[in-house]
């Protein structure tokens, strides 16, 4: 993902990484492809993944542009329904992707906040976009004030805060390999030596998420 240059307002993290890579212009079809992949990855990964803001931004730009054009078509024109249908399909894709992320942010708010804070203090790329991060902060705040309100009549210990809901990173996922990957370590739950598995290009596997989380983030494999 780092080497894409999709729009002028790339976020800072990506812009920094871009410096070393050649600029690459993607066709809209390739952007849709990336969006579909990001959608499926986000759908099946138990934890929240690094955001794909540049892809979303680029696709939304295409959609808006097309919607403007549709306005200019006569309503009898059969091409209008076709274009409208395509726009609706793409809009669904983007919405579903963003909704999945919001669901995860709500479910694992404190956990994600902790991880994001760690990333910020280490100077690493954040997984959430700016607006998602704002949403996370607001959500935690309203949640806290709500809990405070409903428990104000009695003294409640703050024990629940020490055990935030965390995603189950051992959960099993289906993946398809985009290239050859050697020596994926299988976490099989026992502490003795772990199995290794090699992936061929195009092979499909069911495997625990934490064994392949890095490969997904790197883009070597994608979830199906």
């Amino acid at each position: 993902m780092e080497n894409l240059n999709l729009s002028d307002d790339l976020d800072l993290e990506n812009a920094l990484q871009d410096e070393n890579d050649e600029d690459e212009q993607l066709t809209p079809a390739e952007v849709i492809e990336l969006m579909e992949e990001a959608w499926l990855n986000e759908k099946f990964a138990p934890e929240i993944l690094p955001h794909k803001f540049d892809v979303v931004e680029c696709l939304l730009g295409q959609i808006t542009y097309m919607e403007d054009n549709i306005q200019n078509l006569e309503s009898k024109d059969f091409r209008k329904t076709i274009h409208q249908l395509e726009v609706d399909r793409l809009r669904f894709l983007v919405c579903s992707y963003l909704r999945t992320r919001i669901e995860k942010i709500e479910a694992y708010c404190n956990h994600i906040m902790k991880q994001e804070s760690e990333r910020i203090s280490k100077g690493e790329d954040q997984y959430l976009t700016e607006s998602e991060f704002q949403f996370l902060k607001d959500f935690i705040q309203s949640l806290d004030s709500h809990f405070e309100k409903v428990t104000s009549f009695t003294v409640v210990t703050e024990d629940w805060k020490s055990q935030p809901v965390v995603p189950n990173v051992h959960s099993f996922v289906f993946l398809k390999s985009k290239q050859e990957v050697e020596g994926v370590i299988i976490d099989d739950g026992r502490n003795d030596e772990n199995d290794l598995v090699d992936l061929d290009k195009g092979s499909q596997l069911i495997i625990s998420y934490n064994s392949v989380a890095n490969l997904i983030k790197k883009g070597d494999v994608h979830l199906i």
Partner: peptide
């Protein structure tokens, strides 16, 4: 703790999704 599912189509994979990953997860626990 893992299995190849080569040549299965998405619809077929989807049909065991409610069951298999969950069963393996429970075994893991």
């Amino acid at each position: 703790s893992y299995a190849a599912v080569d040549n299965l189509t998405l619809m077929e994979i989807n049909s065991i999704r409610p069951l298999l990953p969950h069963a393996l997860d429970t075994l893991y626990r």
